[in-house]
Design a protein around this nucleic acid. Structure first.
Lengths: 173, 173
DNA sequence: AAGATACGTCAATATGGCTGTCCCATCTTC
DNA sequence: GAAGATGGGACAGCCATATTGACGTATCTT
């Protein structure tokens, strides 16, 4: 299917058309992303199932841990899901005592989300699984590779959303 | 929650404990993976919805395109889902004339999967969306970064599965 | 006072996983 | 050639997670 891989194609100077890279390089990235991402999250999934939760619960826990006192609307933007979907998840987490809310002080319509002590402990446990996997990959690849890893992934995020992601990481740019 | 970010922690020589990296670096990777992966697949998702398919259909199409005459069992291993789940997807694809099967020649119990012409055309269209996104990110990051990107992702895949992924890419090693 | 906003909730629907069970055709082994 | 293992398919039912649309309430803004 299109662009057969040829050992000599590189002599066509890849830099000439950087936006139309060899199919193989793109497929490689797609596949590594797919397998890498799913394998990283596998250990987390197992922990979640043991506690009767799913991935959606983890995502909520994760970002609430990351930004305590996050209003619901902000979490909705981060997750790009509907109010209804998030509602169910938050109700589950609140029912198990992992998340609590308080009214916003400046705007009392807002509910600010934060983890309870149990919630924080659970999130930390889940995070440990992520750390174990990613740390090993980072260490095996080396710091330079990690930088490249970040750079490419940043490039996958559309301009208008990149700022939001960077803000999470305390990198106002 | 563990390991507060301190500006001076780097003076503890990060190479000393490469398996226990700073929390921030791990969280950064997790977040970039999450947002990068979902944003890359967004454009594909839209195309799929227009045609009445979901992500599961794309995954099947993708790997069948990648390895024509793939037996069902091989696809099951790649996708790590159950026979029943895959069965539904393959029936959908066959019903719409995108996938066809033939009996294996060495083992006639096998059904070898391949795309029809329409299937190949559709897969190519979906792939273009991936290429557009990834190529731009590759180009913006530069070849060195791309290598690092690959290296880290490879490290996320457990030893015993890495070979399978490499085989997809015609890299018997 | 009117309207917009933040949040919640009810109801219905779709997707894509899962388990368990049973079946058939074919290959392998003895 | 019979017994068992394997590749594939199918039925039934369940669960998690997402969707849309409609509506309600409290609070903020104008």
């Amino acid at each position: 299917m299109a662009v057969p891989s040829s050992p000599s194609i590189e002599t066509f100077s890849p830099a000439a058309s950087p936006l139309f890279l060899r199919e193989d390089e793109v497929r490689r990235g797609v596949e590594l992303l797919f397998f890498g991402y799913t394998r990283l999250t596998r250990s987390v999934d197992e922990l979640l199932v043991e506690h009767g939760f799913g991935r959606a619960h983890h995502r909520a826990l994760y970002f609430i841990a990351r930004q305590p006192d996050l209003p619901v609307s902000a979490l909705l933007k981060i997750l790009s899901i509907t109010k209804q979907s998030l509602g169910r998840v938050l109700n589950d987490l609140a029912a198990k005592g992992l998340v609590e809310t308080k009214a916003g002080e400046v705007d009392r319509r807002q509910k600010l989300l934060r983890l309870t002590e149990e919630g924080a402990a659970f999130e930390a446990q889940l995070f440990e699984a992520l750390r174990t996997g990613l740390s090993a990959a980072y260490a095996a690849a080396g710091q330079e590779s990690v930088t490249g890893f970040w750079r490419v992934l940043e490039g996958l995020i559309p301009e208008d959303e990149r700022q939001m992601v960077m803000n999470l990481q305390g990198r106002g740019r």
